[in-house]
Every structure is written in C-alpha cells, then in structure tokens.
Design a protein around this nucleic acid. Structure first.
Lengths: 218, 218
DNA sequence: TACAAGCGTTAGAGCTTCTAACTAAAGCTT
DNA sequence: AAGCTTTAGTTAGAAGCTCTAACGCTTGTA
C-alpha cells in the first residue's frame, strides 16, 4: 500500500533472507533473531516489531517455502501432456527444488518445529501441490469403487479437496506418488545415501520410471 | 568394569533418559544440558564430566536410536519364513518402532543435527538394518546384470557390505523397500496426513502389499 | 600413608529470547 | 502549519542457555 507498508515488507524480506542463510549453514537452531538484527544494522529488539517472536519468523519461512514448492510443482505440470511426461516433469521439478535447497525441504518435511501449527494460508499451498500430483494420474476406466475403509476416506478427502470426478483409486495413486517421491528425496537430502556410494539421482529416476510403468498399466 | 565405571554408565543413562523426554516434548532444540543436570539434582557443569558437550549428548542419543532400530528390524526377520511374510513383519516392526517414538525416528531420518558426523559405531547398525531389509528379497533367477551405472554402483556397495551373492537387482529391491517404507512413515510421523483425514496405517499397508505383489512377480 | 583420578562445586564470559520504558521520526487531522 | 497518533528505533535488564576455569572433596591405588 503506502510507503510505510512497503518498507515494512522490505525489512521482513531481508530478515527472512538472512534467516534462510543461517538455516542453510546451521539448521533451524542456528536461526537467531538477534544475529539477524545485528547483520541488518539494527539492535536485537528492533526486529520484534516485525516478527512477534522467533517462532513467527520460522513460520513465515515455512509458509514461503510451502508456497514456493507448490508454485514449482504446479508450473511443472501446466503444459498439457501425456501422463508419463507429466509424471517425469513433476518428479524432476520436485527433486530439483529439494536438492538445491535441502534446508528448505527439511523445513517442510523434516523434523517439525515444535511451536508450529499450520496456518490456513498453507492449506491452499498444500492443495495446489496435491493438484499438481494428481495431474499425473491416468484414467480409471473401471471407475473402481472397492468398498474399503481406505477408499471411503480417500473419497471424503477428494470431496473436501474438490477434485472433481477423480476416483478413490486415482486419489490413492496421487498419495502413492507423493510418498514414493518423498521417500527417495527425503533420504537423499538427509544424506543417507552417501555411505552407500549409490547415486540418489539414479535411484530416484528408477523409482519414477517404476511409477510411470505402473501408471501405464493402470 | 569396576564400580566407578558402572556408576558412570548409570549417570549417562539417566541423562539420556531425561534428554529423550525433553526431545519428545520440545524437539531437539528442547534438549538442555543444564535442565537435565538440574533434574538430576546436580549443577549444570557437572554433566560435562559425562558428555563433552551438547552435541556429544545428541550423538549418543542418535547412536542408541540407530542400534535400537536395527535390533528391532533384525528381530522381525530372524524367523525363517516366506519372503512375503518377512516383508510384512519387517514393515510392521519398522513402522511400529517409528510411530511409538516419532522423535527418535526423526532424530535419525528427520532434519540432521548440524554438528553430527556419523561415528563408525553406527556403521554396524546401518549394516544390520540393511541386512534385515535384504532378508525380504526374493530370488533373481536371471541373475540380472544389466550394465547400468546404477547396477555397477549397487554391485560395489554389495561387495563393501559383504552381502554374499545378492545381485544388483536384489540390492535395488532392498533400497526400494527402504525408500518406500520410509516415504510413508516419514510423512506420517511429521503429521502430513492429518489434514487429509486419511489413515496413514491403511496407506502404509497398501504400500506394503504393493511391495509384496511386486516381489512375488519378480 | 601419599598421590592421583574422578566428581562435584561456584564464578563468570558470552550468547540467546523477549519485555519494558523511553525517544525520535513520520503521517494524518484539524 | 500545529498537534496528535502511530511506528520504529533505542537502552536496560531478566532469565535462560553452553561451556571454561579454578577450586575442593572423595574415592581408588601404589
């Protein structure tokens, strides 16, 4: 709006930028409001005009990361294309996002920060990323409707998410894509592959191809 | 050995016990050497006779967790049984271990603690858990030896791990089991399923059955 | 009995988060 | 333009943290 507010936004952004640097080199515990303030040329307490407390700053970082990831995933599947193509694009985009900024990925999917309760704002982001995942789903000709608890829950979730005419089976596919991609990415960004000497990228690609094959089979 | 050393071990254990409580309720950042000492009835600096610093305490927790998980996984597959049975037993044991003490699972597979470099001791634990996973692997009649970079790396890893006559394909299966189980468990313990209303246990079971089916197909 | 090792203490430096009270500047209203 | 309110910064300080230094006391051993 006015100059006041714009300047305010700017200061918040700078603080977050520095916080991200600290996050990258020392983890969440390395983020210090005091140190950030000092680096910005003001005293410690000044920053508390911009963030209620340390947790609020962390929450802001999480929100940003969530939106950023959702943007990335959404962008990867906007072009209309075959399911297999969408799948590969989405997977690559997701992994790329994660490994270029592991600390941010871990902010979302690593150890939860204790004080954090997901604000409503992130719901939209979560929805967007899930929609991106569901763009990779294939047909479900049999319109499968097995009467299992899982499928009932998936159905309810689908309605809540307004996923249109996606069947539980298709929603289950979406979740599976999500868990499998995350499984490899998560172990990669936490460095669990390093001892094995196996290249995580190859494992990831194999997993993606397995999903593609499974998707084409139905 | 002597009484001195036994007493020492006892104090270390009590400190770790309290640290685990703090971990459970406030995350890794909530672990305070000072507070632990106070709860043990001694002054803060006294504990530094038992742990060089806070990081050393955390490392001890990680080591314990690693060994404990390895024990659990190993125990799940000791009984000779069909691959499918082994698979289900291993998966259940792993998930059970994780969800009954999420903070410990996250200590191993969540955001890495910055100062931590895996000591040699944990190598053995890692080896044991991987061996447990590999106990679920089926035959590889074709003795597949596709000449890919991935298979070459897997081969080298297999030799380093002394996995006997397991083929790269079988080792790849092992890694896939690992990443897929972790994918679901990780998202469950970080609470990512809660918003969906879908029961993680059902998703997990479905994933396990998918692995079993895939394993029986070869 | 003498000596060394181990375990606890207090004191304190230097960091942290965050509150309280005060000052200076900017913007809005009359 | 004068005056009031909002905002942004300051210093002071409480309460906590990690960790070092220096000092006693209590064991275990030679």
């Amino acid at each position: 709006m006015d100059r006041r507010q714009r300047y305010r936004e700017q200061t918040r952004d700078e603080a977050k930028r520095i916080a991200l640097e600290q996050l990258a080199e020392a983890g969440p515990g390395g983020i210090s409001v005091n140190a950030i303030a000092k680096r910005m040329g003001v005293t410690g307490p000044a920053l508390y005009r911009y963030f209620a407390n340390r947790d609020a700053l962390l929450t802001a970082l999480i929100e940003d990361a969530y939106n950023d990831l959702a943007d990335t995933m959404q962008a990867a599947v906007t072009h209309r294309a075959a399911n297999a193509t969408q799948m590969r694009a989405l997977a690559t985009a997701m992994r790329e996002w994660a490994i270029t900024q592991p600390h941010r990925y871990l902010l979302l999917f690593g150890t939860p920060v204790p004080g954090y309760e997901a604000p409503i704002e992130t719901l939209a982001a979560a929805h967007r990323s899930m929609t991106a995942v569901l763009a990779t789903v294939g047909e479900d000709p049999e319109h499968a409707n097995r009467r299992s608890t899982l499928y009932r829950q998936l159905g309810a979730w689908g309605e809540k998410m307004q996923t249109g005419d996606l069947t539980p089976k298709q929603l289950h596919w979406g979740i599976t894509v999500w868990t499998r991609l995350h499984g490899v990415i998560s172990l990669e960004v936490t460095g669990q592959f390093t001892l094995t000497g196996v290249d995580p990228e190859l494992v990831f690609k194999a997993e993606v191809e397995s999903l593609v094959a499974w998707g084409e089979r139905g």
